[in-house]
Design a protein around this nucleic acid. Structure first.
Length: 569
RNA sequence: CGGGGCGUAGCGCAGUCUGGUAGCGCGCAUGGUUCGGGACCAUGAGGUCGGAGGUUCGAAUCCUCUCGCCCCGACCA
């Protein structure tokens, strides 16, 4: 492609509405434009990148035995009504009405539709295993679209669905997908972790996320440096605490702590070598109608997902100050489990804190020399959040904390949808049984932005070769015609070698061209100037490299093509 | 949905408090000089000041309503 003919609207200034690097750079470099909140146009460069990602996904899905199809995005109400999601999906479902008043929605995901297709056509165990996928726009009325392509109301997704005769067979399908996903993410050139995840609203027994590591990620994950353990902090397990059960050097003692509400304030106020780890944090939650007191060590945090699970409810809400006062008789910050007469959930680590400090259930007072077992009891359940420095549950090495962007999510669904929708098959014995399903998503458009989050510097994008919009950027510079003529020749030669080339044939000053080159992020730049030409050389520079290599004009095309191949791995 | 911020030329902004007929930088067009990291000079085009209503002799500016966008939170296969 010739730059003078290409639609690449670059901008020097940072768009004010963009805060994330990927959002800013994709806008500035002319890859995307915004139409509305969470709605974007993919400009030619952006589409090329997305198509490359999709091509890799397709190749690996096909290689894993999945077959591509395309379902409609516009869907009548009936299907979601059948599974119960017409109401349970809530306002996130983008609904619309046709001229006859019929209810429709735009598909946020396609379990119901594919299950309907399969129940009509798959009747025998002989037709399985079956894995069908599509790459298609998804629509969700997100409560808050943000961060450019990372959280959109309309986004490109690859969703695959597996159909099997048994749980064991379904797990095999799941594992095949998991391996295919590893290949996909590796080929995309992204640093990622496979992490244990919360199955959440999808229901189902097994699920894992492919988290692409990024500073700005929405998800918090922990990963072990020594083994391959990694998990979303929502589900990461804390190892059983070591050490002796809690004891105390004396009876509880009430101390005046005026106005000290947070753990940090109390620690600083009491001093004397007290650390947050020797205090107890008491947090009141509402689980339905009931008030529950959750107690964790002072330097730990309550994990609400785990707490909800321990209580057997779907979610918990932090109690208001008024609720806390009614339950404990004190302000938040002065509450504690000692003498508290309601339901208490205690994190295991709490049972090892000797001479603990905790709220006295009397505003502006705390208790010292408190010990679990002697001064209070409760239901011991793991409810704390795991963080950096915690021991790995599988090998005990310290865990590191990361932020990640969910790039893919795989689930074993079981018979959640098939049972509800009557998707059954005849087994070898002629018995009717529900099909066992799995589903597997990859956020294709999101990965465009994710790749930028992970591959950029102060000057612009640094695409991995595998997904770059072009592989080589030819940059003739200077006022003479010779560099441009050579660039034209190289352009032809490289094209013939199958290299994807962008030729910057603009008669711009060198600075302008270099700035745009760095911004666009094409992995290899070839600079052709009269200086080099006088010596019979041109410059080949990787976007990620500091300096350029001088290569001979003679045989340059082959050299460059080889460099492309090398970066493709 | 709660809290905060912002809508003025394609982009980034000033002007709004204190009402008087819209400005700067970048970009764009034309001519000239330049040419290895976003050049310079000259000339020029480009704006219903998000929208509607109101107050006023007069509204970008004051009042009311409304639409949109961003951030934090809630939420999130």
């Amino acid at each position: 492609m010739r730059y003078t003919r290409a639609f690449i609207p670059t901008a020097r200034e940072v768009p004010k509405d963009a805060t994330m690097p990927s959002h800013q750079l994709l806008l500035r470099a002319g890859y995307i434009r915004m139409v509305g909140a969470g709605i974007y146009e993919m400009l030619p460069l952006g589409l090329r990148v997305m198509n490359k990602i999709a091509a890799i996904v397709r190749a690996e899905m096909d290689g894993a035995g999945a077959q591509e199809l395309l379902m409609p995005a516009l869907l009548p109400r009936d299907y979601f009504e059948e599974s119960g999601r017409w109401s349970s999906f809530g306002p996130t479902l983008l609904r619309l009405t046709d001229r006859r008043g019929g209810d429709y929605h735009l598909g946020p995901t396609h379990e119901e539709i594919i299950t309907d297709l399969v129940r009509r056509e798959v009747k025998s165990y002989r037709q399985m295993p079956l894995n069908l996928y599509q790459i298609q726009m998804k629509f969700r009325d997100e409560p808050r679209p943000r961060a450019g392509l990372l959280r959109c109301r309309e986004f490109m997704m690859k969703d695959a669905y597996s159909f099997d005769v048994s749980e064991e067979a379904a797990i095999r399908s799941y594992e095949i997908m998991r391996e295919a996903y590893h290949r996909i993410f590796r080929r995309l050139g992204l640093e990622y972790r496979l992490v244990g995840a919360d199955s959440g609203a999808m229901g189902g027994s097994t699920s894992a996320e492919f988290q692409v590591l990024a500073q700005n990620g929405e998800d918090a994950i922990v990963a072990c440096g020594a083994c391959d353990y990694a998990a979303n902090v929502e589900v990461a397990e804390a190892v059983e605490p070591e050490g002796a059960p809690a004891s105390a050097s004396g009876p509880p003692e009430k101390v005046h702590t005026p106005g000290k509400r947070s753990i940090d304030e109390v620690v600083a106020f009491l001093g004397g070598g007290l650390t947050a780890a020797r205090t107890l944090k008491s947090v009141f939650y509402l689980a339905g109608e009931a008030v529950v007191l959750a107690v964790v060590r002072g330097d730990h945090e309550v994990n609400e997902v785990k707490l909800a699970r321990a209580l057997g409810v779907s979610e918990v809400f932090m109690a208001s100050d008024a609720d806390v006062a009614a339950a404990s008789g004190a302000q938040p910050g002065s509450c504690g489990p000692v003498g508290y007469r309601g339901r208490v959930i205690v994190d295991p680590a709490v049972t090892r804190v000797s001479d603990a400090v905790t709220g006295a259930n009397e505003t502006d007072y705390h208790l010292t020399h408190v010990a679990y077992g002697r001064d209070f009891e409760g239901e011991v359940r793991p409810i704390r959040q795991v963080g950096a420095g915690d021991a790995c549950p599988s090998c005990s090495a310290p865990l590191a904390a990361y932020r990640g962007i969910e790039g893919g999510h795989i689930f074993v669904l079981g018979t959640h949808y098939s049972a509800k929708m009557g998707a059954t098959f005849n087994d070898e014995d002629g018995q009717d049984r529900p099909i066992v399903m799995g589903c597997y998503g990859i956020g294709v458009s999101r990965l465009v932005a994710t790749a930028v989050e992970q591959n950029h510097d102060a000057d612009g994008i640094r695409w991995p070769m595998a997904i770059a919009p072009y592989q080589v950027l030819l940059t003739p510079i200077g006022k003479d015609d010779a560099p441009f003529e050579l660039a034209e020749r190289l352009y032809e030669e490289l094209g013939a070698l199958g290299v994807e080339v962008l030729l910057d044939d603009r008669r711009e000053r060198p600075g302008v061209k270099f700035k745009d080159a760095d911004l666009l992020g094409v992995p290899l730049r070839v600079t052709i100037g009269d200086r080099g030409l006088a010596e019979g050389v041109l410059e080949l520079k990787a976007r990620t490299a500091k300096d350029a290599d001088k290569i001979a004009v003679e045989g340059a095309a082959a050299r460059i093509a080889a460099a492309v191949k090398e970066q493709l791995g």
